[in-house]
Amino acid sequence: MEPLMAVAIGLLYAAAIFLMLRRSIVKLVIGLMLLSNAANLLIFTSAGMTRGAPPLIPDGMPGPLGTIADPLPQAVVLTAIVIAFGVLAFAVVLIRRAYEIVKADDLDKMKDTDT
């Protein structure tokens, strides 16, 4: 599974970078979203991928039964997902405000600080 994921993550990164290099600010934000998702997957897969063994401990047991998936990357990714959402919400509202003022979706028209 891991090699397939590696290729998928690479493609996600490529798509994200391509979008971030556009002049359209909306595309920039979409690229940002792809990038954060790709990074999350990168962290998630870094500890290896395990099927059907969630990091849970059954009732009455002191520890998990058998091998379980590594919980640490999951915890880190969980934090990252939520923060990425916060950043995205902020960015989206920011570009909306910017559009109201600059009246353009073009980043090159936002070069000056005077508008």
């Binding site: 590696a6 290729v7 993550i9 690479g10 493609l11 996600l12 990164y13 490529a14 798509a15 994200a16 970078i17 391509f18 290099l21 790709a38 990168l42």
Partner: peptide, 10 residues
């Protein structure tokens, strides 16, 4: 550029 980045990440 994007392709290079993606390939490198893979």
């Amino acid at each position: 550029v994007a392709g290079c980045m993606g390939g490198m990440i893979t």
